[in-house]
Amino acid sequence: MGPLIPYDIIPFEWSSIIAIIIGLCFGFILEASGFSSSRKLAGVFYGYDFAVFKVFFTAAIVSLIGLLYMDYLGHIDISMLYIHPTYLWGAIIGGAIMGIGFIAGGFCPGTSLSAVAIGKIDAIINVLGIMVGVFIFSELYPLFEPIYNGYFYGNITLEDSLGINPYWFVFILTIVAIIMFAVTDMIRKRVKKVFY
């Protein structure tokens, strides 16, 4: 059956409309779970709130398990799914910069927008900062281009590069995730309570 758009079950023209609807739902749920608070987001780094970490890790595992089951039952052709291409050093440097911005600003790009939607001033400044960063990057693009387009590894997955069975990988990842959830819970209980 699916994926719906690559197999033209849903026409390609609908993709942006669907993206807007999914985006609205995503933003609403981010805000409803309290992810529009920079204190909650920064809590991951200071050890008093691991909600962000737990939510995103759980989401990744749920979708992984779900996709593999759907693929197994023939509802989804996993080989047709989009795999984000790997630009190794671009991803490492970009990830480091985003991490710094995450700690300093207390928002990741998605949550900053949902915080702007409820009128948080720090989030508005954060988004302006993102725009300044985008502007600097575009102006200096010729300088960054070799890193941006270099170290290209194609649309690889862990399955390709490590050669592991995806089912075993998901099983091990699930156990690792549950252990990490338990450990983060223990850390949270030890750290002094912070009111936010």
Binding site: I61, Y69, Y167, T174, I175, I178
Partner: peptide, 19 residues
């Protein structure tokens, strides 16, 4: 509830391996 959810998770992921 968290323990139950974690258990469901492991069962589902284990199911993938055992299928």
């Amino acid at each position: 509830r968290y323990k139950i959810l974690a258990f469901i998770f492991i069962v589902l992921a284990g199911g993938l391996v055992l299928l």
